[in-house]
Amino acid sequence: MPTTAPPLADATASDSALRRFLHGLPGVDTVGLEARAAALGTRSIKTTAKAYAIDLAISMIDLTTLEGADTPGKVRALAAKAVNPDPLDRTTPRTAAVCVYPDMAATAVAALAGSGVKVASVATAFPAGRAAPAVKLADVRDAVAAGADEIDMVIDRGAFLSGRYLKVYEEIVAVKAECGQARLKVIFETGELSTYDNIRRASWLGMLAGADFIKTSTGKVATNATPANTLLMLEAVRDFREQTGVQVGVKPAGGIRTTKDAIKFLVLVNETAGEDWLDNHWFRFGASSLLNDLLMQRQKLSTGRYSGPDYVTVD
């Protein structure tokens, strides 16, 4: 298990040390960041590159259902879709994972047994994270016990915004300790952190605490993943690896619905963090409707005809 390398060990020694470290990170100029993200969004990805990108994107999806109305039936249907996204074309890659609430994790584990598709479970009183620490940890233990391969936790945004960084850090460390073999994705809810400076600080805080992935958002607020906030997080994992040798994954979630969007994110990965992240072990999309759009575009590439929603499965 990766541990924080010596150069940064001091950063988490105390609340004030952590604050000094996070506030000492270079600032982010909003206009410049967004302009860079927009410029990369104009890359034109055609033919063979598009085919590669579509299959890669499908393989990176955490196919997600996080609704109060979720049932075992719904989760099983989603699992079937993850394993066999396009019944008309068995060469279609499987998605990376299925992402559910903890009480659905066991159902997902059973449905996906032997498929290679991982089970991700949200935890820590997702999406608000407003529960007692013990409750949050119990939530994680439940999910891990049910067999989840990955835990998507939310940070305490209230603590973060009020400057209690060490509290946020310690909570992540505690959750990580409960994860066992499961990989930990740390959700910042970037829409609530509001500023890019905060997103950069949260990224480093999460990585220092042992996150295996840093993830933009829950999908439950107005602003979720954007090219700019994902670009910023990709810069963070790139810089963190250069300083510590530890590679951390990135997961934009929420609001990525079209193939065009997904390809823009892959361009960001390619030209910011680099090709080491072009793999579903290091980059994921938290999405649901994205998959069908990718499948229709994939069908277009193989048949030359535009597809329609009647030619993909609706679950």
Binding site: R43, S44, I45, K46, T48, A49, Y52, A53, L266, L278
Partner: peptide, 10 residues
């Protein structure tokens, strides 16, 4: 060289 080679887009 990268795994993600952009095809010509003239």
């Amino acid at each position: 060289a990268s795994a993600f080679e952009y095809a010509p887009a003239p």
